[in-house]
Design a protein around this nucleic acid. Structure first.
Lengths: 131, 131, 131, 131
DNA sequence: GTGGTCTAGACCACC
DNA sequence: GTGGTCTAGACCACG
């Protein structure tokens, strides 16, 4: 599936779902008119309360990423990929900025920060290659 | 002064205070036996409720970074610099990892992520040179 | 219910709650995965401010006795019974030692102290049999 | 000297001083008309703020254990030994009861409690013989 | 409904 | 003046 949740992310679970759906749409993994998995299905897979998924889907409808198809479910909206692509960088940027800002308060200089980033990127790459 | 709070940090205010005190101790800005500014003083400067600062200071006592000097205030504990230095990297790492993990889910590759990081580092540097 | 508070205990209310939860877990009255009564419920029963109970529960989380179940409440943690059993004697010992130390300063000898203890134990037994 | 303070006693420092003076008077270590050491002297010996000792002495005057001798200092009052002897047991009893009450809540039975008390009495005896 | 955070303001003990 | 405790009540996120 598309989603993986980390309860200790700092981000609310419903927000993680929202963001990941947007990422999937931006990346073309989910295409316009395509149906997203049902609230219950996602809830089961993520071992999360259905209300939480429902809330994420509600948010995604408000953001015009999903739209209801009567009697069928929720589908990716027509203009969604564009909107999501535009948001994607901003979403990541925003969080990255907060973290780097704090890192600077901790008196780490740019060199040390770059090293940190590289170390983490390596970890991520390893995780991915193991899958 | 030492502290600056960002309400949209994702982190609770009391947690930001905790982290910044630890950073200050790790960096040697606050030295053992030195008194930290009083709850009321910090609360005034940050325009925050004294209870919020008190909670941060309570947490810092639990973490053995601060210790009470009866009727006088809170002082940096003896072994605190070591403990804080050891924690500093971990604290930053932790948050950085979460953000990068999400960034990868957004299907940005390492090259793009590095560009993002560099862009943000530049922004930070400019901010600092303007001060 | 589990808890009973004595405002003139010398101990802070939140601390009494902390200790009693630990005792209950040590005694097996509260078992792992079991939910503790909610902050609001305990607050109502003890006629105490919810924040006070919340503080106790926060402390118990820091001590890894309780752990959050998102949106559901707080549950007894897996390793908690062991931890609590190990702490139980120490907690009681600690307070007992302080009192006996003072009692000796009052120049009561061991014989008189034992008599005092026996007298109090009798009182307690009577109280309990009356219930 | 008469006094020894334990900052982690749970009891306020000034209260510990009050109680110990009463104990000393009850035991005849301090006799009527005898001068007690000056606030400054006690404060120095206990490494405590003079205001704290002053407060204790104020309390002791209110309790008619000490009385001022103009231009000289504070002396043990005439009826003080009787009053203190009567209070002594009550003071100790009170604290002992609280501790034992908590101990029972921790589900220790009388046998275990007696063992605890004996263990602590032994510790105290050793401490005293070492002095 | 749950806990988490924050605000506002009280009182106390200690220095 | 200091920190510690407690109360009262608000808002939010999550289920």
């Amino acid at each position: 599936m598309f989603f993986s949740i980390d309860p200790n992310n700092g981000l609310a679970i419903y927000d993680q779902v929202v963001r990941q759906v947007k990422f999937a749409v931006a990346a073309g993994v989910l295409r316009p008119t395509e149906l997203v998995p049902s609230v219950r299905e996602v809830a089961r897979e993520l071992a999360v309360n259905p209300n939480t998924v429902a809330r994420a889907y509600r948010q995604l409808q408000a953001d015009r990423v999903l739209e209801p198809v009567r009697g069928t479910g929720l589908a990716v909206a027509a203009g969604a990929p564009d909107r999501c692509r535009r948001q994607r960088l901003a979403l990541v940027h925003e969080r990255l900025r907060q973290v780097l800002r704090e890192a600077r308060q901790s008196r780490l200089d740019n060199r040390e920060l770059r090293a940190l980033v590289e170390a983490e990127l390596d970890v991520l790459e390893q995780e991915e290659s193991h899958e």
